[in-house]
Design a protein around this nucleic acid. Structure first.
Length: 349
DNA sequence: AAGAAGTCCAACCGCCAATGA
DNA sequence: CTCATTGGCGGTTGGACTTCT
């Protein structure tokens, strides 16, 4: 019964059955589970194209699908919907996920609302596989303050750096190839455009979206992208953290930290307060790759460095996925082993 | 080459709030 | 008000796939 045509039983039969599904199962004794077939997909797509998304249980019945309404809904929302974005999570999206998760926690659907085309399931999977993996690398809990600090002061700045780097490269390419259709002569690119080079989706005109507004010339130009003049004193109160002197909005959330990336949520601007970049500049700028192995903070630093260098030398480092280099680990070790385990406190000296 | 271990993600589960009869 | 139904959400899992040994 629980066998799908793609081969193999995928899901166990559950002993549980909600009242709603029970009645449904009574109507349809042989409800299918497991992976959807192409035929089922087509049936669902065609039915919704002709009738719209009605009540899912009746939709499933009327369409002749031997699936629960829930299953149909999930399949449609997470996979078949035409505006579902597929492919890797971009750097901008990663940054956004980290930021929004720091605000809202595991509110996946809420976070997904700000990543057009991405589903809550996809974001949840991203978090569980990638982010938790990195927490594991650092041997700390993903919800711990240590890891959150690491995200704030290492990961997110690093993402920023890479976004800027790729934007610079894109701008250079654009200039060199005289491509100006979606980029201005100044080398800007436009996150609001469908044709933008950063692969960020068009977020449309809805009022409840996040616009990565800062990703204009700041990233693609010679300007300092991240405010190196950060001080704890100016971080929480200053209205502007823009090295260009652009006016940016006050920070409403004390957990924010200011990069040169103002972002708006619900039409409310806020900024990444990332200052501290000067403090991190060495580790952020230096290594061309980062280790890809779990490291023990109690392990001597030279051994960790060796691990990193070995990994780099062997060419096994996936730079797109690795966050912590040897210097990061050293830094984290200093702070994690400190009396207050508070990275920010250490930084504020 | 092959088995083990790790990673990714589609799909399901269980709970709960909203809705309507 | 009560109850059944539905939809939505976060958590979990199994299997395919990839990487490692």
């Amino acid at each position: 019964m629980d066998v799908d045509v793609n081969g193999g039983s995928r899901r166990r039969n559950s002993s549980r059955s909600s009242s709603s599904e029970q009645s449904c199962e009574e109507d349809q004794m042989d409800l299918r589970r497991g992976p959807w077939t192409v035929e089922e997909d087509l049936i669902l797509i065609n039915y919704i194209a002709n009738h719209g998304e009605g009540r899912w249980n009746s939709l499933a019945r009327c369409a002749g699908l031997r699936r629960t309404g829930k299953s149909c809904r999930l399949r449609w929302l997470n996979y078949l919907r035409p505006d579902v974005r597929r492919g890797n999570i971009t750097l901008e999206e990663q940054l956004l996920i980290l930021e929004l998760h720091s605000r809202w926690g595991n509110r996946w659907s809420k976070i997904a609302q700000h990543l057009p085309g991405r589903t809550d399931n996809e974001i949840k999977n991203y978090w569980r596989t990638r982010v938790q993996k990195h927490a594991k690398q650092l041997k700390c809990d993903v919800n711990s303050k240590q890891f959150k600090d690491a995200m704030r002061y290492l990961w997110m700045p690093r993402l920023m750096e890479r976004i800027q780097a790729s934007a610079s490269a894109a701008a250079a390419t654009a200039v060199s190839s005289s491509v100006t259709s979606t980029m201005s002569a100044a080398g800007n690119f436009h996150p609001h455009s469908n044709n933008n080079n950063n692969n960020f989706p068009n977020v449309g005109t809805g009022h409840d979206v996040v616009l990565v507004q800062g990703m204009t010339s700041d990233f693609g130009s010679h300007h300092a992208q991240i405010n190196a003049n950060y001080t704890p004193e100016n971080s929480s109160t200053a209205n502007s953290c823009d090295s260009l002197g652009n006016q940016v909005s006050p920070v409403s959330d004390p957990t924010d930290y200011c990069y040169n990336l103002p972002i708006s949520v619900n039409d409310q601007n806020y900024n990444f307060h990332g200052g501290q970049i000067g403090y991190f500049s060495d580790s952020l700028i230096s290594p061309s790759g980062h280790f890809n192995q779990g490291l023990d903070f109690n392990q001597p630093m030279d051994q960790q460095s060796n691990q990193w260098f070995d990994a780099t030398a062997n060419g096994v480092v996936d730079q797109s996925e690795n966050l912590w280099n040897a210097e990061d680990i050293w830094f984290l070790q200093q702070h994690f082993s400190g009396s207050n385990n508070n990275m920010e406190g250490g930084l504020n000296k």
